[in-house]
Simulated assay, not measured.
Amino acid sequence: MSIKKEEDRSYPRKILDYMEGFLVSKTLFAACELGVFECLHDSERPLSAAEVARALGTSEDGTERLLSACAGLELLSAQRGDEEVLYRNTEMSDRYLTKASPQSLYHSIQYNSKTIYLCWHYLTDAVREGRNQYQKAFGVSSKDLFEALYRSEAEMVKFMQLMNSVWNICGRDVVTAFDLSSFRTIYDLGGCSGALARQCTMAYPECTVTIFDLPKVVQTAREHFLSIEDKRILFHEGDFFEDELPEADLYILARILHDWTDERNVELLTKVYRSCRAGGAVLVVEALLSEDDSGPLTAQLYSLNMLVQTEGKERRASEYRRLLAAAGFSHIQVQRTGKIYDAVLARKQ
């Protein structure tokens, strides 16, 4: 064995990377929160740390260190000027980290920083207790999951902004994983901001999509997220566990089933089956775990997040097949997109 290989074996690079992973996340979070990427996007030329600090009202020393770290993470490009280092956004940062970009992940980052990160402080307790950690993280009861999730209007808007940015990035992949053009009347249960409904109407111009969600969510979606000019996106106020579901050709459950226990999911899917027209279907959108527990890592980490935040978990395709079959659905198909979220289509004969 070479000396180089022996040295590599004695240096725990991967463990060190994992141990310090939160430093990377918080660097990204802080840069977004302070407005670093907006500042550089708005500038017509690269800026020095001193110029960015003056624009943001931050310390020059702290700003220089933050910009240097962002350059190391390839979120910024750095070039040496005559007397100082000058910074500008990378193409990736301009596209995904500035608020005005159609593909912005800014609000997802804010939600991760301000909400999810605080819940994960109690991950050890969540594993010990087997339940979410809203009580410890925010001092609110999680007896009603969405009362905890939407514990204030500001928190509800933050969550809706998170979902909006997620579906602006991933929505088209999941609504086109199968050909849904034969389904004209679609209900998006828990449709939140309407971003996935919008992706659906763009992909299938002949369909109408109704967002079925809690009254306060529908009101906020109408006011802040969707244009009233889009006549193919409608609204229905209700609680899908408590209220009757209108008849439709297709129901979309996107990032819904992972919030709940198997028992609650069979209850919901049975309601969907009963309301679904003959020949209709349900489209389940989730991050699917592999059958042999080998990954994907993102879905495995998301499942831990479900532990600290909800009553549910991420599941394997076979588990969703069992839940759908238990509710009466058949001809269950699975389509992996190669990205975060996958699609499962099940039909009612």
Rank of each mutant, 00 (worst) to 15 (best):
A137V: 03
V127K: 06
Y187D: 12
F138D: 04
T220S: 12
E129Y: 12
D213N: 05
S141Q: 00
F183K: 00
S193Q: 09
Y204K: 02
T210P: 05
D179F: 01
D188V: 00
N132S: 00
R222V: 09
H121K: 15
F183P: 00
I186N: 04
C192Q: 10
K143G: 10
Y122D: 02
C192D: 10
N164Q: 11
Q161Y: 14
R222N: 11
L226T: 07
T201V: 14
W167E: 10
G139R: 04
V218M: 06
C192W: 08
I186A: 06
E206F: 08
S141D: 04
S152E: 01
F178G: 04
L145H: 09
Y122N: 05
L226R: 09
F146C: 00
F225V: 06
F146G: 03
Y187T: 14
V209H: 01
L214S: 08
Q161L: 14
K136E: 09
L123P: 03
S142P: 05
C207V: 03
R198N: 12
L123V: 08
A221W: 02
D213G: 06
P215T: 04
I211Y: 00
R198W: 11
T201M: 07
K158E: 15
K143E: 13
R131F: 02
I211R: 00
T124N: 12
F146P: 03
D213H: 07
C207A: 07
Y187R: 15
L149K: 10
S165D: 15
A137L: 03
I186K: 02
V175L: 06
V175G: 04
A221M: 03
V157Q: 15
Y204C: 01
F159W: 09
G194N: 05
I169A: 13
A195P: 09
Y122M: 00
S182K: 13
T220E: 15
E147V: 15
G130N: 02
R222L: 10
I169F: 15
Q199T: 02
E153Y: 10
S193P: 08
S142R: 02
T210C: 10
S152P: 00
Q133F: 04
D188E: 09
A126I: 00
P215S: 05
G139F: 04
F178H: 06
T176I: 06
Q133N: 05
L149W: 14
F225Y: 10
A126T: 04
L149S: 11
L196T: 04
Y134S: 05
V218H: 07
I186R: 05
L214T: 06
R198K: 12
K158C: 14
G191M: 07
V174G: 12
G171D: 10
S141M: 02
S165G: 14
W120Y: 12
C207D: 01
E153M: 11
Q161E: 11
L123F: 07
W167T: 13
T208C: 10
S141P: 02
S142E: 04
E147M: 13
D125T: 08
R198D: 09
G139T: 02
Y187Q: 14
A154F: 12
S181N: 05
E129A: 11
L196D: 01
V217K: 11
G194L: 07
V174I: 11
R128N: 08
A126F: 00
I186P: 04
L214G: 06
M160T: 06
F159M: 11
F178V: 04
S193W: 08
D125K: 09
T210W: 01
L162W: 12
A154P: 07
V209F: 00
G139N: 01
V218D: 07
V166G: 13
T176V: 04
